Simulated scan of single mutants.
Amino acid sequence: MNKFLFALCSLGLIASAHAQLKAPDADYAKVRQQFGQLNLTVNAVAESPMDGLLQVFTNKGLFFTSKDGQYFIEGNIYDLTNKVLVNDEQMRPYIQQQVEAQKSGVIEYKAADEKYVINVFTDPTCGYCRKLHNEMKDYNNAGITVRYMAFPRGGLGSETYLQMQHIWCSKDSRGAMDKAKDGDNVKPAMCTNPVKAQYELGQSFGVSGTPAIILPSGRLIPGYQPAKALLSQLQAGS
């Protein structure tokens, strides 16, 4: 897909996802103003499963607030009746929407007999990311397609950020990723690319390290998972 068209499509899908989650305009305006004081960018606001609270999806993860924006709640909230972590349950559909909006910008390793698709925030300089990559045949043989998304751990000013742009802009992005994961140099190439957007997306999910695996359910698993263990979780629908 043309890189410029990809960027426009992604922005359109994200805007659509945000529109579905958005709370009444009055609440949204108050919350955005209050959260701005904390240097947090509000991506979407929705009614919380808890009466009197809103859930706020930001550039740094999920938070909760009173409807007037006065009270800010950071941390995990548990539903003791249903035995679930509310943060996780509410983030899953949001993550699914946002990942869907980025699917044209991933680097994909497709299973011949595909049963499941996972998205993985990766950094080619990360040891466990390389371990996962070296076992790509195991994932694919288990019917798991792996889609890489960029998350340079050093941030947007790092050498890895530049390297990942070269990877995504390469004519053979998979080949470039393979080389980078082996510790080899990647030929410089620049274009309009999704690396910055994907990194910021990962931050909005609460990702702080790599690999970070996103299951089809929207569940986010921090860290490496061997193919057999991951397959068990996928089969269980977790």
Score class of each variant (00 low, 15 high):
K171P: 05
V106H: 02
G154R: 07
I14C: 06
G105T: 08
C9V: 13
N87Y: 12
G154W: 08
P24T: 12
Q55T: 03
E200G: 06
S66A: 11
D68A: 06
R147D: 06
N2Q: 05
A112G: 04
N119P: 06
Q163F: 05
S158P: 12
Y71I: 13
P49H: 08
S238D: 06
D51M: 04
M149A: 06
T122H: 03
Q55S: 10
I221W: 04
M190S: 14
I214N: 02
G75I: 04
D182S: 14
S208L: 11
N140H: 12
A112F: 10
E114V: 08
K228H: 10
P194I: 14
F121K: 00
Y116M: 09
L53E: 06
Y148F: 15
A46K: 13
L54R: 13
V106Y: 05
Q102W: 04
G61V: 14
R147F: 00
G75S: 09
N39C: 03
P49M: 01
R147W: 07
L215G: 01
D184T: 01
A180Q: 05
R32H: 06
P211K: 02
D51I: 08
D25M: 09
G127T: 13
D182H: 10
V120I: 15
S204H: 07
Q20R: 11
D51L: 10
